[in-house]
Amino acid sequence: MKIAVCIKRTPDSESRFKIAASSAAIDEAGLKFDIDDFASYAVEVALQLNEKQGPGETVVYAVGPDVVQETLRKAMSMGADRAVQLKTDAVPYDGLAVAKALAAELESGGYDLVLFGKHAFDTSAGIVGTATAELLGVPCVTAASKLDIAGGKGTARRELEGAAEIVEFPLPAVVTIDEGIARPRYPSLKGIMAAKKKPLETKPAQLGPVRVTVKSMELPAERAPGRIIGEGAAAVPELVRLLQTEAKVL
């Protein structure tokens, strides 16, 4: 099967974030970037599908400046066969602009399946996958927690509040991947060495117009320091009173 996986480079989610001087972006100084977690699940799903179903090709795509080549190479060190960088100076915030660049490239690729993470950690917008499906004119399934392909048809499981649904769709299709579907493999040391020799193609990105931009960002207000009300059973009535009147949680 020919599978495309569109991946994004995002900062490590356990970083301590600061807002940049522009106040409309995070300060990237000192942050460690890697393949987005959801995108890494999507890469793993693609690799497993092709391992299970025999000869196929897994191609990874990323939109962005040259630093995304490192992220693409990581996906190839996990096992993807080749990579395409759609080059821009920066990744626009507007998901539709990104989707237009990807769709323009994927349209002639002859892919049976195009996978995305369900959203990326940095924007949590979840637009690019669905918008790309729309632009390609193919069915789209979002947030799949399980994905099987057989006989030109796909079956996906989606987790709902208190239930799950199983959906069916014809190929080609776009599927965005939820967490928990598969544990992404560690890039093996042989895989890292092999990735050096795999093709990484760079093309200019045909971005759509950028109509949505970030005006400003703010961090959550700092939590007030804790307060010790008293000790032992004697403190309970006061604690209950404060939880009712001040914290308003009871």
Partner: peptide, 14 residues
């Protein structure tokens, strides 16, 4: 090298 960093990072994550 980039590969040496990638190897270190993969084992680090493991």
């Amino acid at each position: 090298s980039e590969e040496e960093c990638a190897i270190r990072d993969s084992v680090r994550q493991f």
